[in-house]
Amino acid sequence: MLHIKCPHCGMRSQNEFSYGGDASVKRPNLNKEISDQDWDNFVYNRKSLRGKHWELWQHLSGCRQWIKVERDTTTHEIFNTLKADEDIS
């Protein structure tokens, strides 16, 4: 079980969180024309990265904040966690 540092609450066990997918995906703005391919990429297509990966987690059984977590997908090492409004460097 992973040990995730919530930027709001501190170190907590994985069972307090739920996974939310790739954090680098940006939702296209509303009311903006978008091609089928770009929309398809946004809704469905994700990279299955080996190694460092920025991902979203929600601290569901805690502060309920969505956070960004940089995790190695092979070793599970967590390098960094950010609040929802902090940008991935």
């Binding site: 929600q58 569901l60 904040q65 969505w66 929802a84």
Partner: peptide
């Protein structure tokens, strides 16, 4: 609730 929080906090 999680869905609403997602859009409010991230989008």
């Amino acid at each position: 609730l999680s869905h609403l929080e997602y859009y409010l906090q991230l989008v």
